[in-house]
């Protein structure tokens, strides 16, 4: 008898559609759908996807409680040996959904789970709770990811001891496991040093524990005298995207004057973001960057001033390192301009 697996995928991988269909509600289908085939093939009959749950990414994000409830009920009914979600590669909301739903299945139903995504996918923040296989940052990585996920999943279903993350291909999950490397430590250290000296990439075997929390700054005392700046990762740009900010994996940010602008309109502004349905933002960019309201409040004297420039980039697929660099840079500009507080909006 082969092991039973329930697979979770989004609307895109189920061939329903892209962003314009991200709102679709969850549905249960029999057997495998789309990428499930690759898993089935790798299992060679030892395990099989008996049901697939398809859910739109926006639906999941906006109706998380409802989506969870439906998915959990279906999974419970199916009584699978394992629940697999994704892989989501670098799709942020899909990754978030995969990790979140897998975590819920694991915690509430006690069924072993596995998902896969790119390391910088926001869903990977749950890597210490859910076993996540590290994948490439685009669906082109499916061919590589499927056998790794299939092998690890089978091991888990068989109740075998799983090895270290570096051996099995899952993201380091805070549980340190010993294993034998090919080379002795001193050789690895010399190689690592040579890489570091020549500015080539290297991977530390023990990432320092992250304490990267920044303490909150003091609150603004008097709003009526404060200059407030608007920033966004929602990709709002002047119509035509003059600086060609990429719709995904942005390599730079935009700095645009809104001096004298009362309202963002369909004629003047749009979004460059490729990760969400742009219709609403293109129709009225205030829905992402509330210039109209802040201008109103400025006139009423509720705030001192709306800063003359806004800063914008596209969060979609942008590396954490880049996002960090952008913000660190424009934060200095804001500081020099005497901005007292920032409203950052994200999509």
């Amino acid at each position: 008898m082969s092991y039973k697996v329930v697979h979770y995928i989004n609307q895109f991988f189920a061939n329903i559609g892209g962003e314009e269909m991200a709102h679709v509600a969850p549905e249960l289908r029999e057997g495998f759908v789309g990428p499930g085939m690759a898993l089935n093939t790798a299992w060679k009959g030892e395990a099989e996807i008996t049901a697939t749950i398809v859910c739109g990414d926006s639906y999941f994000a906006e109706h998380e409680a409802d989506a969870k409830e439906k998915v959990l009920a279906w999974v419970k009914e199916q009584k699978p040996d394992m629940f697999i979600a994704g892989p989501a590669f670098n799709a942020g909301r899909y990754g978030y959904a995969c990790a979140t739903i897998a975590n819920a299945v694991q915690e509430e139903l006690g069924i072993p789970v596995l998902t896969g995504m790119y390391e910088e996918n926001p869903g990977a923040d749950l890597k210490n709770k859910v076993l996540i296989v590290a994948t490439a940052n685009s669906a082109a990585g499916m061919r590589k990811a499927a056998p790794v996920m299939a092998k690890l999943a089978l091991k888990i279903m068989k109740g075998e001891k799983i090895g270290a993350s570096a051996e099995e291909g899952y993201m380091p999950n805070g549980i340190r496991r010993n294993f034998f490397e090919k080379e002795v430590g001193a050789k690895r250290a010399v190689d690592m040093l040579i890489a570091k000296l020549s500015d080539k990439p290297f991977t530390t075997e023990y990432p320092m524990p992250s304490f990267d929390r920044v303490a909150p700054n003091k609150a603004v005392k008097d709003l009526s005298k404060a200059t407030i700046a608007l920033c966004t990762s929602g990709g709002i740009v002047p119509k035509g995207n003059p600086d060609h900010i990429e719709s995904s994996s942005a390599s730079h940010y935009g700095e645009y004057s809104i001096a004298g602008v009362d309202d963002l309109t369909a004629e003047t502004y749009e979004t460059a973001h490729g990760g969400y349905d742009p219709v609403y933002a293109n129709a009225d960019a205030d829905r992402v960057l509330p210039v109209d309201i802040l201008r109103e409040m400025e006139r009423e004297g509720k705030i001192g001033k709306l800063h003359d420039f806004f800063y914008t980039t596209v969060g979609n697929g942008t590396s954490v390192a880049n996002a960090k660099k952008f913000a660190a840079e424009y934060a200095q500009k804001l500081l020099q301009a005497g901005v007292h507080a920032v409203i950052m909006t994200s999509t």
Binding site: E167, N178, F179, F180, V184, G185, A186, K187
Partner: peptide
Amino acid sequence: NEMGFNRLSAR
């Protein structure tokens, strides 16, 4: 061993 005498490691 912390001179890296062995192949043993962890992740």
